[in-house]
Design a protein around this nucleic acid. Structure first.
Lengths: 343, 343
DNA sequence: CATTAGCACTCCTTTGAGGCGAGTGCCAAT
DNA sequence: ATTGGCACTCGCCTCAAAGGAGTGCTAATG
């Protein structure tokens, strides 16, 4: 065999690629005859068979039973996906329609992201995910405090795009609502129109006129706001889960149930999305690379930072996903989202 | 045949009840022999058969094929459920544990209701639903406004229990952030500690010192807040959807897919919950009584108004639900929720 | 007249054998 | 190194037969 030591010959690569492609298209194990006829007509089935046997030994394929065709292993998927990612992809035909539909969502970032996650699901037959992360990079509009009783205070943070974030904090000493209002007003005056990251230091050094007496408490409040805004991936939108039931891969109830239970763990899901996304461009994470639970799924993510907001869009679908199509849809919708957020 | 004109004899009722019960327990069509032996040992299978034939004619049963047992129609379910609702139900054994677990959720009403909906799902193998409605009855803590630009203003309403509600409104004329702050402060002063319903009229007649110049605009803001708080069922929590896949009834992917698509329509679902719940006590709505889409499901709801908040807890499950168990679990958890909200 | 035992009949479900076909592995020829 | 040929494997489909649960009907019974 050629290409020992893990390096594949040109033809071997073509065989792997074709088998994965064929399997993605048909859902059936691919045989040597089919590959020869459809993808490598210059080579006879016997030649392909020999390569396939070698490639199986190298861990790219496996057979569900002796007399069946080959199925790709995750190693084969990895090779395929890496190759697909590098190619140029045509933009999907529906781009214009999506752009228009996304633009029509006017009721704030929440609504847009909910809509986008559902749209992703519908368009790809996968589960759509939209995560909003790194809140500290988004422009602030307003910070205010509501006294809930004792030293418990609710912090309300309004961010650019109508995004509202709230959390309860404990202050070291009790402040009146008037004092809290004053503090909120002063913070807002300094911070409005800037990202938290930009004004954090300034605020910590800021002398709040009239609040010197409670300086420590104010600092404490700022520290806690800092913690809230630094918490990553704080908003997650999931949509279109019903569509993956259209796929033959999830006819098996057990598999789908696993996915569903993952989807309900918002926190864990958010961390997963955060962990596997890369700074720029599409990332694909396959089955076992994610976790035992997700072994039948793959996770396609693309980050985008339009308009000061760092969002991550993603798909959760079967390993046997049409990566080419899914990735181009995902990229296209990510772009539409950026456009939409920018107005 | 006895009991013509739609009135059932005692025994006929028993037969209907037993068939439904047996079907709920086993998931199999019930035959005359089984019913005779297990539920009506004083009567021979032949007698039961005669009754069954009559009852089938009356629309209580149908047969999947000639030589199979009987299955209940929705008419039979209705009879069964109405009878079950009236009986006394034993409290489930896990009550204490649930109460403790619900109490441990400290992070506000949102978190409690999310948790409760998931708990409901897990405990009953149905989809758990928790709706928070009639916000106008909940005590207000704070109202404030954030200027988003032009005449667009965000209203932030903080309710008792750390519930935050926000919406964007359009005002007839532009106000500065300072003016908006002043308005928010004045409204809050009047309204804090009261339900909107109590102070609505007072607020409309209130003269906002220093804001006379923008009196009309203030009134408009109040009107819009009124609309926001009157919108029914404004928060909905759904949880535990994965559990209904444990049930044999949802092994059919198509059925589950329908349910899932209903669950993703938050608005429609909220209206459904609102419409079918009754003022007091458990209500059960069956399949076709709800909608064509939900023909294989039943909806069990129980309202509770502890602590000024009107909540509705519910289950969405198969028609072949163990109503006795589900209802007692639902009632028990509703009670635990009330307790938990009251502290 | 309601109830019951007996019995023929229906129809679904399971089981097993046989044939088909897709696909492989290996060998010998090119 | 590549290819054609060939025997072999194994899942899947079909078909017929057997099995069984349940019914409807009829005639007997208290």
């Amino acid at each position: 065999m050629k290409g020992g030591g893990g390096v594949l010959t040109e033809r071997q690569f073509e065989v792997v690629f074709s088998v994965v492609y064929e399997y993605i298209q048909t859902g059936e194990p691919a045989g040597s005859r089919t590959i020869s006829k459809k993808y490598l007509p210059g080579n006879s089935p016997a030649t392909i068979r020999n390569d396939m046997a070698d490639l199986e030994e190298m861990g790219y394929f496996y057979q569900p039973h002796t007399s069946a065709g080959r199925l790709p292993t995750s190693r084969a998927y990895r090779l395929y996906v890496d190759s697909v990612i590098q190619r140029r992809r045509p933009a999907p035909a529906e781009t214009e329609m999506w752009k228009r539909e996304i633009r029509e969502q006017k009721q704030g970032v929440d609504a847009i992201l909910t809509y986008v996650s559902q749209l992703l699901g519908k368009a790809t037959n996968c589960v759509g995910v939209a995560a909003l992360s790194a809140l500290e990079g988004i422009e602030l509009q307003r910070v205010s405090f509501v006294r809930l009783g004792g030293t418990t205070v609710m912090v309300l943070i309004v961010l650019e795009g109508g995004l509202v974030h709230h959390a309860n904090i404990q202050l070291p000493c009790e402040l009146s609502q008037d004092t809290l209002d004053e503090l909120g007003r002063k913070i807002s005056t300094v911070a409005a129109g800037h990202a938290w990251g930009e004004v954090r230091d300034a605020l910590f050094n800021f002398v709040f006129d009239g609040l010197e007496r409670v300086w420590d408490t104010c600092r404490d409040a700022l520290t806690q706001i800092d913690a809230i805004l630094n918490k990553r991936s704080s908003r997650l939108f999931v949509g279109g889960a019903q569509h993956i039931l259209n796929l033959p891969d999830f006819q098996d109830i057990g598999k789908f149930q696993t996915v569903l239970s993952v989807l309900e763990q918002e926190q864990a899901l958010a961390e997963m999305v955060e962990r596997y996304s890369i700074d720029q461009g599409v990332s694909v994470t396959l089955g076992e690379e994610i976790s035992e639970e997700m072994k039948d799924c793959s996770l396609v993510l693309v980050p985008s930072q339009g308009y000061g907001m760092k969002t991550i869009l993603g798909l959760i679908g079967p390993l046997r996903m049409d990566y080419e199509k899914s990735i181009s849809i995902l990229e296209s919708i990510a772009e539409d989202l950026d456009d939409s957020l920018a107005n």
